[in-house]
């Protein structure tokens, strides 16, 4: 039986070029196995052959991930690999990023499987686990032997044409995604079964896991309230009349800015509401009850606050993904800083 052709990827250190001083090394390729690749070859056995080893410096890769990946692909392709293995990179952040990037591009461009190994705290895990198979390893290269053993076992499964349906059960990081499946029993029976196990103190597996929640400590206000510029922000879907920026009513990835300069309060001609997740009638009747412009102008006049920031930021929070919420939140935060706001009131629905 013909053996499976493998290209291995290493950084400058494991590839034997040099340490941190060689981190700017350009992409290059060497025939056969190099460094830990020889140990990997031994673990993989005779059904695999490491035909070449691609190497690149961590800094060079980090400076231009897309460009370097493309150059590496050009070096790798002539070897006609059927599988690419990168690393393992353990807890090395830049190396991990290179391994993840290369595996992702190999899968996309060469349409062959790729896999790598990392420690759970390597930031590249979060970045690539949704599309790259990443074996769990320990934190340092002292555990190279165990890591290569796991990677070789996975490679054997891929070589058999197997799809890793549940990466977490195969010693890898879960992709963190979800898909439609049909189970053996209806939801009613599954719910009662799960409850009976919970009552009896027996193990059970929830079909939806609890996400990790961020804990945000509110910032301390630099100025006293009487001197502060205070901004208004909402996720209730307020938009300028006619919705000129075409803000969707939900599942959105953006925010809109509404100028309130010269406005004492919102009139029904100024604004409208686009949000599919709640009863918006009360906002259509009086938008000041979603974004309290009228009250804030009073407080401004009375000197309770220094000044109202003249731009209101708004988005529609309905069905928004956490990733988009983080992105929109950062954008709004940046804009508030530019506007000179020292405090913000967020009204939600």
């Amino acid at each position: 039986m013909e053996s499976m052709r493998v290209v291995h990827y290493l950084n400058q250190f494991f590839g034997g070029i040099g340490g941190e001083d060689a981190a700017g090394a350009e992409p290059q390729i060497k025939p056969g196995a190099v460094g830990p690749g020889r140990q990997l070859q031994a673990r993989l056995g005779e059904r695999f052959e490491i035909v070449a080893t691609a190497i690149c410096g961590d800094n060079a890769f980090a400076d231009d991930p897309a460009g370097i990946a493309e150059r590496l692909i050009a070096l790798i392709a002539p070897y006609r690999p059927q599988l690419v293995i990168a690393g393992p990179s353990f807890n090395a952040g830049r190396y991990g990023q290179g391994c993840g990037q290369l595996c992702a591009v190999v899968q996309e461009k060469l349409e062959i499987p790729a896999l790598t190994g990392m420690y759970e705290e390597n930031p590249a895990v979060e970045q690539f686990r949704d599309r790259v198979l990443i074996a769990r390893t320990a934190g340092t290269a002292r555990h190279m032997g165990e890591a290569l053993y796991s990677i070789a076992a996975l490679a054997a499964r891929l070589a058999r044409g197997e799809t890793i349906v549940q990466p977490a059960e195969a010693g890898c990081f879960a992709r963190g995604l979800k898909r439609t499946v049909f189970r053996d029993d209806d939801a009613a029976k599954r719910a009662v079964d799960m409850l009976m196990r919970k009552i009896a103190g027996q193990p059970f597996v929830s079909e939806i896991s609890v996400p990790k929640f961020d804990r945000v400590t509110p910032a301390r206000m630099a100025a006293s309230l009487a001197n502060a510029t205070v901004a208004l922000v909402t996720d209730g879907g307020l938009v300028a009349k006619g919705n000129p920026e075409r803000m969707p009513t939900g599942y959105t990835d953006r925010m809109t800015a509404i100028s309130v300069t010269g406005r004492r309060q919102f009139a029904t001609d100024d604004v409208e509401v686009h949000h599919f997740g709640y009863n918006t009638q009360f906002v259509s009747d009086d938008a000041n009850r979603l974004v309290p412009l009228d009250v804030m102008r009073d407080l401004e006049r009375e000197g309770v606050i220094g000044k109202l920031s003249e731009t209101v930021y708004s988005t529609a929070g309905a069905g928004m993904s956490l990733a988009n919420a983080r992105k929109v939140g950062r954008e709004i935060g940046q804009r508030l800083l530019q506007d000179g706001a020292q405090a913000a009131i967020l009204t939600s629905t």
């Binding site: 059970f204 939806i208 609890v210």
Partner: peptide, 18 residues
């Protein structure tokens, strides 16, 4: 993604059928 499955989830909700 897994984290966008529900708009609101109790950290104590450990027995959920989808």
């Amino acid at each position: 993604r897994v984290e966008s499955t529900l708009t609101f989830m109790s950290p104590r909700a450990d027995a959920v059928v989808s």
